[in-house]
Write a protein that binds this DNA or RNA. Structure first.
Length: 293
DNA sequence: GCGCAGGTAGAGT
DNA sequence: ACTCTACCTGCG
């Protein structure tokens, strides 16, 4: 168990920001996060963040939540005369750019297209439950004593979802999908995106696209590789670069962002000014557009 | 009932 | 290179 003082950090806002879909609130101050094959219970009260994990896992989650970065530095560099952006950041001050698993982000954002957060969440959950590996809390020393007290609660904001008290499911690797029929994931509610996930998994397993390469390449080259995947276009590729590779200059443009840019930046978005952290600014705007008022 | 939700591939100019 | 449309499904 580790306690950390944090600034510009809010688990609640991160959960709602629409970059990770395996995070939920299980109690007033408590959240559950699953990343790849890892599981974490975290509490937050104001600036005090408590991570329930051992020292070794601590390094992973520190990196995952980008806790070494002071987001105040980004916020200070925003144009104070840009009243729209000032309102946006005021509403989304605790949002962070997470460092998530590459394959997990590929699938997540393939699923996200022409879709809403509620349904994306459900799709991912179904995929994991059906194709992920089940990890038992009593297995492998992961047992959390707190877990025993978790009560199913349908009224929690982010889930009609009943916490699993016995364990959780890891995020399925490409192998789990590559052998499937292209329509197999209709069962998980993916609709026409089913073939995107299955074919992309095959492309990776067959070596046409290499996840290891994508991890190493610079942003532009990595994006080019991602665009080879069936179902991955400009917007999805940028989301993957931003949320998995932490390419903070990636600036995914979707319908919400498009609309905000048209409305508030008719003379063009100040790309030059925000070079190097445009993705952070994108998230502030996106969150504000989604949650604002 | 109908249009749309964090787009993209494929076909047609 | 650009424009147009079909695409699963659930929700208002």
């Amino acid at each position: 168990m580790h306690q950390i003082k944090v600034n510009h950090f809010s688990l609640d806002q991160i959960m709602r920001s629409g970059q990770c879909f395996r995070m939920r609130q299980t109690d007033t101050y408590r959240y559950e996060i699953i990343a790849g094959s890892r599981y974490l219970i975290a509490d937050q009260q104001g600036n005090l963040l408590t991570l329930h994990c051992n020292k070794e896992e601590m390094d992973f989650w520190y990196d995952y939540f980008d806790l070494n970065t002071d987001y105040g530095v980004y916020i200070d560099r925003l144009n104070p005369n840009d009243s729209y952006l000032m309102k946006a950041v005021a509403a989304s001050d605790g949002v962070r750019i997470l460092k998530q698993d590459l394959w997990e982000m590929i699938v997540t954002f393939l699923v996200s297209q022409q879709n809403h957060i509620k349904r994306i969440r459900r799709c991912i959950e179904l995929l994991c439950n059906k194709y992920g590996e089940h990890i038992s809390f009593t297995n492998g020393g992961i047992f959390c004593p707190e877990q025993a007290n978790v009560k199913p609660d349908n009224k929690l904001k982010c889930g009609r979802h009943i916490p699993e008290v016995n364990g959780y499911h890891t995020f399925p690797r490409p192998e789990a999908f590559a052998g499937l029929n292209e329509d197999a994931l209709l069962d998980c509610n993916l609709g026409y995106r089913s073939k995107y996930v299955v074919r992309s998994a095959r492309q990776i397993l067959e070596g046409e696209v290499s996840l290891e390469e994508i991890e190493k390449l610079p942003y532009k080259k990595a994006k080019e590789e991602l665009l080879k995947l069936f179902g991955v276009g400009e917007k999805v590729a940028d989301c993957i670069c931003l949320f998995a590779r932490h390419d903070l200059d990636a600036f995914p443009v979707d319908t919400h962002i498009r609309q905000a840019l048209d409305q508030h930046y008719k003379r063009g978005f100040p790309n030059r000014r925000y070079k190097g952290f445009r993705g952070v600014v994108q998230q502030y705007i996106f969150y504000y557009e989604l949650m604002g008022s």
